[in-house]
Design a protein around this nucleic acid. Structure first.
Lengths: 146, 146
DNA sequence: GTATATGCAAAGGTTTTGCACAGCC
DNA sequence: GGCTGTGCAAAACCTTTGCATATAC
């Protein structure tokens, strides 16, 4: 998978007249290095590991900024809201409420679901924005056995 | 719609050996009076309105208790986790990320979606636990026009 | 009487905000 | 040099927890 390099994001920010500070560079680099979910607190820890002194408020402000320009998006999982790279949004999260296992639905598979919802209500769902809870196959079997 | 009266819930709690304090009565009564989502902070405000001095921790403890005994369940919406009466769980929340409008999918309609997901992954989704985000018909039209 | 529930106060954690200073362009 | 971004400190929230007291049964 070809990840858009950090420099692309930096270029994008530049075009918007935003300034590239060392802190932003570090935060952006860390984000582009991360696959999947990015929680503000985790990100803060990681970034502060390599560049001590970066303030938590800077992390939060930068995350909000990156969402505004479309680099990041947020989704709601069981543990709360998390960010992810916008171009990585292409899957639906299935989270097992019993064992916590995570599985994904590809957008191809989700297509039929989306069409079904659109047909009934004219609502255009974004199935990536919230996870879908439930029981994974294992836990479903286990609990049914009782 | 026949709401199970407050007395039923009180009876249920009694059967479990739990005690019915005035605070619990007030909280349960308020919950049974509420349709839809119940946020802890709102509930605290309301209950304290009619019975000043009820502590927030009592609200939280009671909500957790009521979830344990199956009277309440929680769901994840855009604003975070909220409670709702368990017997009101029978619908899927569609929330528009543009205008905030809320629509519902009946469980009949959701049945097809559930079967589709089960078929692909053996995962048994509970579509009531997370909302489904996206654009409502109006906002979809509006934004497409641009 | 005894176990349970409540109030209180404090702590915990995350996120936001105001303001002065630093530093990018 | 001017304007943006950052750090700092404080505050704002929401939620949890420990402990002594009150109270339902």
């Amino acid at each position: 998978m070809a990840l858009p390099p950090t420099t692309d994001v930096i270029e994008l920010l530049r075009q918007r007249g935003l300034r590239m500070t060392p802190q932003r560079r570090a935060i952006v680099a860390e984000i582009m290095r991360t696959q999947g979910h990015i929680s503000p607190t985790e990100l803060a820890r990681t970034v502060q590991g390599e560049m001590p002194g970066v303030n938590a408020s800077t992390i939060y402000r930068t995350l909000a900024l990156l969402e505004e320009v479309g680099v990041l998006a947020h989704a709601h999982l069981e543990g709360g809201a998390e960010y992810h790279r916008a171009e990585e949004a292409g899957h639906v999260h299935l989270t097992c409420s019993n064992c916590g296992a995570e599985d994904d639905l590809s957008m191809d598979e989700a297509g039929a679901l989306i069409r079904l919802i659109e047909r009934h209500h004219g609502f255009h769902p974004d199935l990536t924005h919230f996870a879908i809870g439930g029981l994974c196959a294992d836990c479903g079997r286990e609990l049914a056995a009782k």
